[in-house]
């Protein structure tokens, strides 16, 4: 394996993302929303901090998911469609290095964008902290600049790592960006309910439906596990062990999907 070649492909993806106006617009829009949440907070007496935190984390998640899917599905498909892949694979670049580089590059792009949005959210919260009276501060369940919010962001990155792998998987064999987007978003939405699917057998009482539900619940990524927004907003502690296990699950799931992606990509003809 050449780490250099993987790094080069990853760096190229990151550079492309950094010059993408759509990404700038999306991050800009998210930052604007944080500002707007200040106004929203004024309308809800006593709940302003929770609303800003909740809305802020939700905006970061939605932006991250959209970026992951919209960029992820085009990452390989566009290279094939525009035939730029010919020049790349004519180099001593293994196909798996190409896929890994693309994946790492998109994760870097997402991490940078999520970092910018997180800093913007903390800036809004710092403003709240600075302007609030001691009485208001005392009524908060958790401090405005609660470092536990970073745990939610870390888990969000774990979720995006899995979703990016899924989007990349569809990108390698589907020639339609629309279908890849729908499939990826479908997996994301269904993955939110993977826990409920596993419990389908007891709920419906049908063994066949239960078996299908259990199978789907096991196959689909358990995206619901990454969502700790409400705990963070209400100042509830998130055990470190839970964070570790969830991130390990994300790493294993992403690795399995990437392995399948590479297997599909290795067999592909580029006509």
């Amino acid at each position: 394996m050449s780490a250099t070649r993987v790094q080069l492909v990853a760096w190229h993806v990151f550079k492309e993302g950094a010059r993408d106006r759509v990404l700038f617009t999306m991050v800009g829009f998210a930052v604007l929303l944080f500002g707007a949440s200040l106004l929203l907070g004024q309308l809800t007496a006593g709940q302003d901090l929770k609303i800003i935190k909740d809305l802020g984390l939700a905006v970061i998640e939605v932006s991250g998911v959209l970026m992951s899917v919209l960029i992820g599905v085009g990452l390989v498909a566009r290279e094939i469609d525009k035939r730029s892949i010919y020049g790349l694979l004519a180099r001593p670049l293994r196909r798996w290095e190409f896929i890994l580089g693309k994946y790492v590059g998109l994760l870097m792009t997402l991490a940078a964008n999520v970092a910018v949005m997180t800093v913007a959210l903390y800036a809004v919260l710092a403003w709240m902290q600075w302007t609030a009276t001691p009485a208001v501060r005392a009524s908060w369940e958790a401090p405005a600049l609660d470092p536990a919010m970073l745990v939610a962001v870390v888990l969000l990155m774990g979720e995006l790592a899995v979703l990016t792998a899924v989007a990349l998987f569809f990108s390698t064999f589907s020639s339609s960006a629309l279908w890849s987007t729908l499939f990826s978003l479908g997996v994301f939405v269904a993955g939110q309910f993977s826990g409920q699917l596993r419990e389908l057998a007891t709920a419906v009482g049908s063994r066949a439906a239960g078996a299908v539900g259990t199978a789907l619940g096991l196959i689909l990524p358990a995206f619901g596990a990454f969502d700790v927004k409400s705990q963070v907003v209400h100042g509830l502690a998130i055990p470190l062990e839970f964070v570790g296990m969830t991130m390990a699950y994300a790493a294993l799931y992403a690795a399995a999907v990437l392995t399948a992606t590479i297997a599909v990509f290795n067999r592909r003809d580029f006509q």
Partner: peptide, 26 residues
């Protein structure tokens, strides 16, 4: 290798593209 009617990343400059490919060649 030069493919037929090649497409290269249009956001890159000529210098960036050739350097990128040079790096991929070691």
């Amino acid at each position: 290798f030069v493919p037929e009617q090649p497409y290269y990343y249009d956001h890159l400059s000529a210098e960036e593209l050739v350097q990128y490919f040079a790096g991929l060649s070691g």
